[in-house]
Design a binder for these strands. Structure first.
Length: 1027
RNA sequence: GCUCGAGUGGUGGAAUUGGUAGACACGUUGGACUUAAAAUCCAAUGGACAUUAGUCCGUACGGGUUCAAGUCCCGUCUCGAGUACCA
């Protein structure tokens, strides 16, 4: 009986589905374990072999945990709202729901075919109304909350209202908008309903605010920074302007400190934590207020260097600040306005890319130094960003390079406040060696002491306070898109109103087209049935809007991260219609134990999810304020692209360059160009040359990487290349030009272009299936390939796996040829999970060969019949088994899956040579392999005579006694170099070992009469003889 | 620029607390079986010299610690990821 993986895999996949083998129960005597994958966006292209890497790893771990007696939750679903489906809808008119459903079907088939142990009964799709009902529900909870700094958590807005009613807002410590006017209890009560709502909106955790966005009028949409290239849209190249729009924002900044602190409590990769830490960007310093001369205005600045306050020689404001217009003097008005206008035209990208140009304008206003009372000129400059801190800086040119450059450029004085430091060339910003001078009460202090003292003095005179500032900004939560969650929001007199939870979900309306409306409204503006009837509590036709009981609904939709910010909790109770999840479910499952996914989500999904989790924790909805205990970033699988080299259709004949200096390939190239005699058109248009005939550019690269000497290059070019290999293209020269193909007389040069070829045409030894390539593209049908030894060897390069590079490998094809178990093993075998590594289909034969060998261990009967004996295994077989158990268990616990695959291979190699077919070894072996190659394991388990699935059978127990050795083959080193090996009993003492070694004939041979100075003996490890 | 990570054969990668560098696999070469191919099996495979024994070099580069360094320390280079007028 052959290893028929197709039949086996099909049967067991059916078995698992039919028996719901992997369905997790929400209550169990077993301990719980929650293994989660970052769910996929179902794209139209389907999966390539890179995608399942993380899923295979998490599946192995989930299966392992089942063997270890855990009740495992291992769900999967789809992040199915998103731009590609919408883009496709705009192009083809097909409803995104239709294409999304079709894509999901493909994904499901591909996932099923890989044998994952997902509990599909818990599948969620972010785009299904049953799911987004709860996304809308959370939005309402966030809207109905404010952040109380006193209790340091989110609270219901009702607690805020009662404070307002009782005593106004004077004592309220909240994370809220800036500059809210103070009001008393009586004021509050006298406010109209609308006024009250407006005030509350400034406190809510999600609020409407004007945010500046990249608006593209031609596309009618807002673009992300990376969708803009050189100031125009990436798609279509339309102009983009900065525009203020009223949008929903999430007050994530309220959680900045807790998001930072929480990182210390989770086992996540350090780089990921670092990037979140950077993103949150905590900096300590002081906020200092400067009065303006001859004006009531004040300017607040945030500085991390209050110790340098006596070094201030000017102030710089962001040009966007409204204050600028108010303080500019009439004389400077024209200049300032011109500068503001110029800045507005520059995109953020421009301002970022262009660090060297220094620009700014003087406002004519002067601020007053809080201590010296000296006048300080106020400038504006686009190196100051409106969105960070207060949008203003106190400029200390001696201590900050940007301030320094600015001061130099505009001839502003640069006072030196550092002891013994020369600032004539550049600013001095080394905090560690700072000693302050020329600074009144700060003189002689170091950075730390001066900072403390400065803050204390600033506070004493009421000019400011010590402050912690965060880079993290509130997150814009509105998108001008169709294919996203609709907001459960309607507007009464422009004020947003939440729809009561019992009327959710508010379903996405149908539209005729998915583009923005002609008046520039979001796509939902095209919906004709999109108004809220407050009497019947239903969505009704727009023409019923009467602004009495029927009101317009919100036209924006939620962003991509809305649906993915709490899905891990919903999996615990995904079909609950009455609650987001039951208390029992969340209390049982608590949080994710292991989360696997890509590092690209570091500052998006993984930050927002932590924010929502903390919010839900504050509300008492979830028991943990961090949702995932451990997280692993799987590396990317890159493609190994294959290249053919298309020769340009003419070659250049030049004077012979023998004897010339060829020390540099650049010179060589130039030389060839200068000495051109003639250009010869080839007989054939399409000629593909082997890599070794590729142009000089390739040589340069090769030379550098291989460190070739000049001599070697000469040899290669003048003899090898110029003569033998060039001969292979001689027949392409037209007969009447043959005289120029005299390699003794002339040099021939040409260039070629590297073109991607589909990797499926290339064999494991890099030779191209020329016929397949010719058939691939009609223009190639009569192309000529210059072969070497009968083959065309392609060039190889590792690149990102992508359709356009023709290096995508489809798992369907791999499963068809080798089976899912082979694919699973091979993906793990490639290398450490976290590392990125190139895919090379050729290597899969190793994994496949292993499975066949494994199969043969159990099928040693006549014609490969199943044959397992009840004999007692040999000592060696027991040893093989138990060292395998030990290693595999350690490896899984450490997520070192690649090494455990090697361990399996070694075990099977050993058992094969031991001719072991004992049940006592082969049964545990099947369980060991089961997490990695579940189909074959199930089949072997069944053949071993067991009923039901192998999936919850106890993991084999490691027993030390089988590994106990009586002797060790010691490596004997002389001066650290291993010279020979010596088998010695393990129970020998150090002295006995030394005696045995010294008595050995090879020792004498090595020593050649010398007396060793020292003999190092590490029992059980090594012997080193020095001298 | 800053932060983090990584450099080991032709390739992917192994290598416990410092203790036999290159496990395992691919590829390559030779051989067996076969009419042939596939499949399978056996052998060799870091480099150089010697080819019997063996010797020397070798984990990006230059130093250092140690009986012993891929592993620890200092410096340099290269590559990758993230991030950026962040005051």
């Amino acid at each position: 009986m052959q290893y028929d993986f197709k039949e086996i895999e099909k049967n067991w996949q059916e078995f698992w589905a039919k028996n719901e083998t992997f369905k997790a129960k929400n209550n169990s005597d077993k301990p719980k374990y929650y293994v989660l994958d970052m769910f996929p966006y179902p794209s139209g292209a389907g999966l390539h072999v890179g995608h399942p890497l993380g899923y295979i790893a998490s599946d192995i771990y989930a299966r392992y945990k089942r063997h270890k007696g855990f009740n495992v939750l291992h769900p999967q679903g789809y992040d199915s709202f998103g731009l590609p489906a919408e883009q496709y809808a705009i192009q083809t008119g097909q409803h995104p729901a239709v294409t999304t459903a079709a894509n999901i079907k493909t994904y499901r088939r591909q996932l099923d075919q890989l044998g994952f142990s997902f509990d599909w009964s818990r599948e969620v799709r972010t785009s299904s109304p049953e799911y987004y009902k709860w996304t809308q529900w959370i939005f309402i909870q966030i809207f109905n909350s404010w952040y109380n700094k006193t209790t340091d958590k989110a609270e219901s807005i009702d607690t805020l209202i009662s404070v307002f009613e009782a005593e106004g807002n004077a004592n309220v410590q909240a994370v809220c908008d800036e500059g809210i006017a103070q009001f008393s209890s009586a004021d509050w009560k006298s406010f109209s309903d609308k006024e009250q709502q407006e005030i509350l909106l400034q406190y809510r955790l999600t609020y409407l605010a004007e945010s500046e966005v990249n608006w593209c009028p031609a596309l009618g949409t807002v673009l992300a920074n990376d969708e803009i290239v050189n100031g125009v849209s990436e798609r279509g190249g339309h102009p983009v302007i900065r525009k203020k729009m009223t949008q929903w924002s999430m007050r994530i900044s309220a959680y900045a400190q807790r998001l930072l602190d929480g990182l210390n409590t989770v086992d996540w990769p350090q780089p990921l934590k670092d990037s979140q830490t950077n993103w949150i960007g905590r900096s300590e310093g002081a906020e200092v207020t400067f009065s303006l001369k001859d004006s009531d205005h004040k300017i607040s600045v945030f500085t991390t260097r209050p110790d340098t306050i006596f070094g201030v020689s000017f102030m710089t404001l962001a040009p966007e600040l409204e204050l600028v217009a108010e303080i500019t003097t009439p004389e400077q008005k024209a200049e300032v306005e011109a500068y503001i206008e110029a800045t507005a035209k520059r995109s953020e990208r421009d301002r970022m890319a262009d660090v060297k140009t220094i620009s700014g304008a003087f406002t004519g206003a002067y601020a007053e130094h809080p201590f010296t009372k000296e006048p300080i000129p106020v400038w504006i400059g686009d190196y100051v960003l409106a969105g960070y801190g207060t949008g203003a800086v106190m400029s200390v040119p001696c201590g900050d390079q940007r301030d320094y450059d600015f001061a130099k450029h505009f001839n502003i004085p640069i006072p030196n406040i550092f002891e013994g430091v020369d600032i004539s060339e550049e600013a001095f910003s080394d905090k560690a060696t700072t000693i302050i001078a020329n600074s009144d009460f700060l003189n002689g202090l170091d950075y730390k002491k001066a900072t403390q003292k400065a803050i204390a003095e600033i506070e004493k005179i009421g000019a400011g306070t010590g402050k912690v500032n965060y880079r993290l900004r509130d997150a814009v939560f509105s998108r001008q898109r169709y294919w996203g969650e609709p907001f459960p929001v309607y507007y009464v007199d422009g004020m947003p109103q939440m729809i009561a939870a019992e009327h959710l979900p508010i379903k996405l309306p149908e539209v005729d087209k998915y583009l923005p409306t002609e008046t520039g409204e979001p796509p939902l503006g095209n919906a004709t049935v999109w108004a809220w009837d407050t009497v019947n509590n239903e969505v009704v036709s727009n023409d019923k809007i009467d602004h009495k009981t029927v009101w317009p609904l919100e036209l924006n939709t939620m962003p991509g991260w809305a649906g993915s910010s709490q899905y891990f909790n919903r999996y615990m109770d995904p079909n609950n219609e009455g609650e987001i999840f039951s208390k029992e479910a969340i209390d049982y499952w608590q949080d994710v134990d292991l989360y696997i996914g890509g590092s690209e989500h570091a500052t998006g999904h993984l930050l927002y999810s932590r924010f929502w989790q903390k919010f839900m924790f504050d509300l008492g909805l979830v028991p943990k304020d961090e949702f995932a205990k451990k997280l692993i970033n799987q590396g990317m699988i890159t493609g190994t692209s294959a290249f053919v080299y298309r020769m340009n259709s003419n070659i250049t004949v030049s004077k012979k360059m023998l004897g010339k200096d060829l020390s540099d390939a650049d010179d060589l190239y130039k030389l060839t160009k200068d000495a051109v005699i003639k250009t010869v058109q080839l007989k054939k248009k399409l000629v593909f040359i082997p890599k070794s005939l590729f142009s000089f550019h390739e040589f340069k690269k090769w030379k550098r990487s291989k460190g070739m000497s000049e001599e070697e290059i000469k040899k290669l070019i003048e003899t090898d290349l110029a003569k033998e290999r060039l001969k292979s293209i001689e027949h392409l020269i037209p007969d009447d030009e043959k005289e120029f193909f005299d390699l003794e007389k002339y040099s021939i040069s040409y260039s070629a272009e590297a073109l991607h070829t589909d990797v499926s045409f290339v064999s494991s030894s890099d030779d191209l299936d020329v016929e397949a390539y010719k058939n691939w593209r009609s223009e190639n049908s009569d192309a000529e390939f210059i072969l070497q030894d009968g083959n065309y060897i392609v060039g190889r390069e590792v690149e990102k796996m992508s359709k356009s590079k023709y290096n995508v490998v489809n798992p369907d094809a791999i499963c068809e040829e080798y089976g899912a178990d082979s694919l699973r093993l091979y993906e793990m075998f490639l290398g450490p999970l976290e590392q990125s590594k190139p895919w090379n289909t050729a290597g899969i034969t190793g994994a496949h060969g292993f499975l066949k060998k494994l199969w043969r261990l159990y099928h040693s009967g006549a014609e490969g019949a199943f044959a397992v004996s009840e004999d007692e295994p040999s000592k060696d077989s027991y040893k093989t088994l138990h060292k395998t158990i030990k290693k595999v268990e350690e490896d899984i616990e450490n997520f070192s899956f690649n090494t455990s695959v090697s361990t399996f291979m070694i075990a099977v190699n050993e058992l094969s040579s031991q001719k072991c077919n004992s049940r006592a070894v082969l049964e545990p072996l099947a369980i060991l392999v089961s997490p990695y190659a579940p189909h074959i394991a199930e089949e072997l388990w069944k053949q071993l005579g067991h009923e039901g699935s192998i999936s919850t059978v106890d993991f084999p127990k490691f027993e030390e006694k089988y590994l106990v050795e009586s002797s060790k083959e010691y490596p004997v080193s002389f001066n650290g170099k291993m010279r020979f090996k010596l088998e010695l009993p393990l129970d020998l003492s150090k002295d006995e070992i030394e005696a045995a070694v010294m008595a050995h004939e090879k020792t004498a041979q090595q020593l050649q009469g010398r007396t060793p100075k020292k003999v190092i003996v590490v029992p059980g490890k090594i012997i080193n003889i020095v001298g």
